[in-house]
Design a protein around this nucleic acid. Structure first.
Lengths: 109, 109
DNA sequence: TGATTATATGAACGTATGCTCATATGTCAA
DNA sequence: TTGACATATGAGCATACGTTCATATAATCA
């Protein structure tokens, strides 16, 4: 019993991350869990757009889009540059593409 | 203007999937967006467990775990086999590992 | 079969979430 | 500076979600 400690036959927590990390992970997925935000991300998939352009592209209110962009910004999923009076939003990095692709992958198999 | 149709300089929806697919995608991420469910998935990461074992491992009620397992089952993220009176749950496939890893990847970079 | 163990389910409750509407903030042009 | 356009923000509301508690269902063992 005590001689097989390197063969954890009843490992209690194989690789359970810290509580805080689990919360962060859940929060990240939570950002992807809303249709409006998913639409925004796809609208920006390969085309940077202004807030109004996003709203028009996905058929949502400017206010609703702005509210959701705030969440996407906090999650560092989108970034923006100023162009005149407009703010041009784009995807922050390739992680977004990868996450979306991975999700689609699971659904479509 | 009409001669450059294969160069969509103002593509309205570059690769926007169908509405229904977007809902499915959001729903999939929604499953990963709760701490209890994330904990369950990590508890099963490389060790199949019974419901009670999961509950004990993550410090949650049997009822709460059962409720969440129902959601994980519906999303085809976990499966189970019977062993005596117990139901032994395990991850459905490698997609779960990949999804979790991808999420962690984004957080930890 | 009857008792016991394991899991599932339903109602109820508190909280979180996303939308709309109205308005504030901010930027550019004249 | 003023007017017009672009975006952000806050309050309020309706809905969705996760937990607990009590109980139902199911399967095994004696």
């Amino acid at each position: 019993m005590t001689s097989e400690r390197n063969i954890p036959h009843e490992a209690e927590e194989p690789c359970m991350p810290d509580e805080e990390l689990l919360y962060d992970l859940a929060d990240l997925f939570k950002v992807f869990s809303d249709t409006t935000r998913i639409k925004i991300l796809y609208a920006l998939f390969d085309t940077p757009r202004s807030v109004n352009a996003i709203a028009e592209a996905i058929g949502a209110t400017q206010s609703a889009v702005s509210h959701q962009l705030r969440i996407l910004k906090q999650a560092r999923l989108v970034r923006f540059d100023r162009d005149g009076r407009s703010l041009i939003y784009s995807l922050a990095d390739d992680h977004v593409h990868t996450m979306l692709a991975q999700g689609m992958n699971h659904i479509c198999e």
